[in-house]
């Protein structure tokens, strides 16, 4: 008998809305440790909404469905606790926080994670060492970490900063929302390598993207198509190649026929 694989994330029939408008309309997805899931789909399908809902953005209201993370009811937890449970979101549009230095921000974030897990705060020396290591991992410029969080960062720099933070926080589940958009060709490779280096049998990723080129570097175990608030098609990495060639119309037609 094969052991039943441990389930990390289980989303069941999730409905969510914003300002009274339903965006997610019965979405289900299961993620096991070690897996990489790619989510693709047309603009406005609800991909970012899914990442917002999973991470507890208060702008969205869950109207129906269940989400569990290692058996815990995720929807019960405030966003900061979900983060400390090990869920990380690389934002599609990272915000700027003027006046708050990257160093101060990261130290606060790491120590909050440690506090949640009953660990003492990291000493200044240890923190700086970790910071240096992770900067190297994503080839992040020193100048950026000396500035305020994302303030005046270029689009690509912001994305790289997201992956740097991911490396610092070592999440169990990382959700990358179009981390590839805005990255130049070299940066794409560096960021993807960073993600791959952080990959382990215990971790999982949900990679939201529009383009095959990211999936050339980060090889997904599954590819899902999100359309009109639901996952309407799932497959393996070949599905992404097919979508790249044919677009979404044929899937839309399939769905609309039903």
């Amino acid at each position: 008998m094969r052991p039943i694989p441990n389930i990390m994330l289980e989303i069941k029939d999730l409905h969510a809305s914003i300002n009274g408008k339903e965006i997610l309309k019965g979405l289900s997805l299961t993620v096991h440790p070690g897996e990489i899931h790619a989510i693709m789909g047309p603009n406005g399908a609800g991909k970012s909404t899914l990442s917002s809902v999973l991470t507890g953005n208060p702008a969205f209201e869950v109207t129906h469905g269940k989400v569990s993370f290692y058996g815990k009811d995720l929807l019960e937890l405030p966003p900061e606790d979900r983060a400390c449970e090990g869920i990380f979101l690389s934002f599609q549009y990272p915000v700027e926080i003027p006046g708050v230095s990257m160093v101060n921000f990261m130290r606060t974030a790491i120590n909050e994670h440690r506090k949640y897990n009953n660990l003492p705060p990291l000493s200044a020396t240890d923190f700086l060492r970790v910071m240096r290591e992770k900067k190297e991992l994503v080839e992040m410029d020193n100048k950026l970490t000396n500035r305020s969080v994302n303030e005046g960062f270029s689009g690509g720099e912001k994305k790289r900063n997201e992956i740097f933070q991911m490396a610092m926080l070592e999440p169990r589940l990382s959700i990358l929302d179009e981390t590839d958009s805005g990255l130049d060709i070299d940066a794409l490779r560096i960021v993807a390598n960073g993600v791959n280096k952080l990959k382990s049998p215990e971790n999982a990723s949900i990679v939201i993207t529009h383009y095959q080129r990211l999936l050339d570097y980060i090889i997904p175990d599954f590819v899902h198509v999100l359309y009109d608030g639901r996952i309407v098609k799932s497959g393996t990495k070949e599905l992404a190649l097919e979508l790249e060639k044919k677009g979404y119309d044929w899937i839309k037609q399939e769905v609309d026929k039903k």
């Binding site: 991470t55 507890g56 953005n57 208060p58 702008a59 405030p78 966003p79 900061e80 983060a83 400390c84 990380f88 979101l89 934002f91 990272p94 915000v95 926080i97 921000f105 606060t108 974030a109 909050e112 994670h113 949640y116 969080v149 933070q165 926080l169």
Partner: peptide, 14 residues
């Protein structure tokens, strides 16, 4: 902004 607060929340900061 709420976005700034949520960004911090998402990094584990209350």
């Amino acid at each position: 902004s709420e976005d700034q607060i949520f960004y911090c929340n998402q990094r584990g900061i209350s």
